[in-house]
Design a protein around this nucleic acid. Structure first.
Lengths: 188, 188
DNA sequence: TATAAGATGCGTATCCTATGCAGCTTAAAT
DNA sequence: ATTTAAGCTGCATAGGATACGCATCTTATA
């Protein structure tokens, strides 16, 4: 595992650090799916349809949709003529709740995990409270919005989403260029 | 790269998703370093000293410290007898600013990146504003605290930090057990 | 019974993050 | 001057997380 012939060249990355505090695409896609379905209240939307509209991976979307079904946001109907519907009206789907579900809780740092925490100063560290409050503030702000709010201009959304995607389907090449040239990797 | 004999067994991970919106250890260490130095206002702290106190990697700390120096939080003195000092009094070092610097800005999702954004509905999507406000709320809450606040009980901190670490130095085995058994990977 | 949809389980390609390490530079002691 | 104790710098790498791809099964409708 350590030995072996050295790889040819390898593209050469910059280590250092990069931004965190960022939503996963899982969350991103979750919200997009919900907005799509909300914008199409009549018929049922399908995974393929949504993937094409946003030009994103159908495979990954499948899992997102399944998750949203399990969580009670979507009603997923199998079989021919099946598809997706909102389980509740958009006014009763809260953006903060969705994000919390898809992001999996509010644990901003190691000190918040009961089990694995091994920071030496936990007991006397006030930072914990500050961080906890900040995360709470984040979700509180998100909780002020419902799916209805964010997908409000349904007409415009529907128009955009029904238009055929620019080129072919999903182009996985242009994604996350990690356009970080902001803070740390700056070398004079 | 695609072919080749299948690897023996491989520990078998669960894919799906896991929590994001979490601080990097880079940020974690940055805050710990500042708290340490704040708790030792007389002499100068050294990297080795701090790494030992928290039982964390000296190598990584080196880069953290260097970064904090570049950003103007620390004054790093080289050479024998050198070490670290706060560049400003702790009352003038803001936790929110530090986190923003170490986390590298407030870009919670793809739609916020001018360049690489390719979400189909950006123009008509209100979600962007909600997310932006939430991130702002996060930092606003953090900005309410200074290093002086979080490192307030200096006496207790100093006591804990000066105590020798439990066992030997830095044990890199127990870290980030990713104790996620909360949301998605639940399979009945 | 064909067909269209979602469900599932497994494999994998990249990243990202956190480190390791070797050598260099700077500055205070001796 | 020379030693020595710091931090600086530029590689390299490991390990885990994320986001997919793919094949197959299940369900339900026509």
């Amino acid at each position: 595992m350590t030995g072996g012939p050295a790889e040819p060249v390898r593209p050469l990355r910059l280590p250092e650090t990069a931004p965190a505090m960022r939503l996963t695409t899982f969350t991103d896609y979750s919200l997009r799916v919900l907005m799509y379905v909300a914008a199409h209240p009549e018929g049922r939307a399908t995974i393929g349809e949504i993937a094409a509209a946003y030009a994103i991976s159908e495979n990954h979307l499948t899992k997102v949709v399944h998750f949203l079904g399990k969580e009670g946001y979507l009603t997923n109907l199998r079989g021919r003529g099946g598809g997706l519907q909102l389980s509740r009206p958009a006014t009763q789907i809260n953006v903060g709740e969705v994000v919390k579900a898809t992001e999996g809780g509010d644990v901003p740092a190691e000190c918040f995990e009961r089990e694995s925490n091994c920071c030496a100063i936990t007991a006397d560290c006030k930072l914990k409270f500050a961080l906890g409050a900040a995360v709470r503030a984040f979700y509180d702000e998100l909780r002020r919005h419902t799916l209805e709010d964010v997908a409000r201009n349904r007409r415009a959304l529907t128009r955009v989403l029904l238009a055929p995607p620019a080129a072919g389907g999903y182009d996985r090449s242009r994604r996350r260029k990690s356009a970080s040239a902001s803070a740390k990797p700056a070398r004079p």
